[in-house]
Computed example of a mutant assay.
Amino acid sequence: MTLDAMHWVWSQSQSRGNARLVLLYVADQVRTSACEVRVGQRELMRAMNTPSKGTAEKAVKAAEDLGELEVLERGVGRRAALYKLPKAVGFVREAVRSAPESGAQESASAPDSGAQTDDQGSRSAPKTGAQKNRSAPVLSRSAPKTGALPHTQTTQAGTEAGQPDAFARCQPLVRAMTEAGITVSWSMKASDWLDIAAIVQHAGVPAMVAFARDTKNATRQPIRYATFFLRGGWRGLPPAATPPPPQADSDVKPPHCGDPDCDPVTRYREVEHDNGIRSLKRCPDCHPSRKEHRAA
């Protein structure tokens, strides 16, 4: 239920700014089908990263005015207020609503003349016939809470549209995020994988990891899903100043130089220019692309 309430806020809510933060935090705490939960004012203030009670109250009022939040009981003493997300009640993700109960989904583009079931397709399907997609993940039901997709559910996001395998292109980012201590769920729609793969190509893994790390440090509430970073700022990252290191070099790294400004995972240093602008530069001492390491 938490997932559907959160997804409703992300995809359906008309809120902005602090009101949206309040709705996201309330949705994250929801554990009942009625979408009701008790949340204290101090919790909301921490979630919004503000010391002002007035700011939190204005955000709650703005969400109420939109009709997206109801205050069923006001907070009294130590008893927290009871909130409800009325428009999220009964909300179900589109992917869950349309998927068969077994979790298997047939390709929407399969022509009637060529589509066959799994039992018959392996022996008699013509080369042009579409078959059930064994590798497409059922993200809404079968993905584990840790966010790691089973090996038997490797996604083919984007291949039907003639685009590269987005899931494979995102794996360097997934590994770098995990090595940096940012453990989130990567359960998401195929379109989200395509968006993230495009950002990896555009901005580069080091910039995305640095943004996620800074966002996590600045946000008091726990971040559980990778889509939080996708919708919270990854899309706005500038193009990478230098192309990301070749995949072959990333597998073998020289010893870390020990410099406190050098990230031990990405081997990039954050430097400040004369105009005060900060940027990421490859470490000249321990980045895998350095000439001494290549020669070795």
Results as ranks from 00 to 15, higher is better:
residue 205 V to E: 01
residue 119 D to K: 13
residue 231 R to M: 11
residue 132 K to F: 03
residue 58 K to E: 06
residue 109 S to N: 13
residue 129 G to A: 15
residue 70 E to V: 06
residue 70 E to H: 14
residue 201 Q to N: 11
residue 22 V to L: 12
residue 287 H to W: 02
residue 264 P to M: 08
residue 6 M to P: 00
residue 197 A to P: 01
residue 163 Q to E: 10
residue 46 R to L: 15
residue 216 K to M: 07
residue 179 E to G: 05
residue 99 A to P: 04
residue 140 S to R: 12
residue 265 V to I: 15
residue 15 S to K: 04
residue 11 S to Q: 11
residue 202 H to F: 12
residue 231 R to I: 03
residue 249 D to L: 15
residue 262 C to T: 03
residue 269 R to K: 15
residue 241 A to C: 03
residue 148 A to H: 10
residue 160 E to A: 10
residue 271 V to L: 14
residue 187 S to C: 10
residue 97 R to G: 05
residue 34 A to C: 02
residue 279 S to Q: 09
residue 117 T to W: 00
residue 74 R to E: 14
residue 230 L to N: 02
residue 51 P to G: 11
residue 260 P to K: 06
residue 107 S to L: 13
residue 179 E to I: 00
residue 270 E to R: 15
residue 143 A to G: 02
residue 98 S to P: 00
residue 196 I to E: 01
residue 118 D to Q: 11
residue 288 P to V: 12
residue 4 D to K: 06
residue 118 D to R: 14
residue 40 G to N: 07
residue 46 R to S: 13
residue 18 N to G: 07
residue 261 D to G: 06
residue 144 P to R: 11
residue 163 Q to R: 13
residue 286 C to S: 09
residue 187 S to H: 08
residue 91 F to E: 06
residue 230 L to G: 07
residue 2 T to L: 07
residue 91 F to Y: 15
residue 121 G to I: 00
residue 229 F to Q: 03
residue 131 Q to G: 10
residue 272 E to L: 08
residue 64 E to C: 15
residue 277 I to E: 14
residue 37 V to E: 08
residue 58 K to T: 09
residue 86 P to T: 06
residue 127 K to G: 07
residue 56 A to I: 02
residue 78 R to I: 01
residue 289 S to H: 00
residue 133 N to Y: 03
residue 192 D to R: 07
residue 295 A to N: 13
residue 254 P to M: 09
residue 98 S to Y: 00
residue 243 P to N: 05
residue 158 G to T: 01
residue 17 G to Y: 10
residue 150 P to L: 08
residue 283 C to T: 05
residue 81 A to T: 03
residue 211 F to A: 04
residue 260 P to I: 04
residue 257 C to G: 07
residue 27 A to H: 04
residue 103 G to C: 07
residue 231 R to N: 11
residue 189 K to F: 01
residue 19 A to M: 05
residue 280 L to G: 05
residue 30 V to W: 02
residue 200 V to R: 02
residue 206 P to N: 06
residue 140 S to D: 09
residue 7 H to I: 04
residue 157 A to R: 08
residue 271 V to P: 00
residue 141 R to K: 15
residue 52 S to L: 11
residue 203 A to M: 03
residue 161 A to K: 11
residue 189 K to Y: 05
residue 2 T to W: 05
residue 278 R to C: 07
residue 191 S to I: 09
residue 181 G to T: 08
residue 259 D to V: 03
residue 42 R to E: 14
residue 216 K to S: 15
residue 145 K to I: 13
residue 9 V to R: 02
residue 35 C to P: 01
residue 222 P to G: 06
residue 66 L to W: 09
residue 21 L to S: 08
residue 199 I to A: 02
residue 193 W to L: 11
residue 243 P to A: 12
residue 285 D to I: 02
residue 232 G to Y: 05
residue 141 R to T: 15
residue 249 D to G: 00
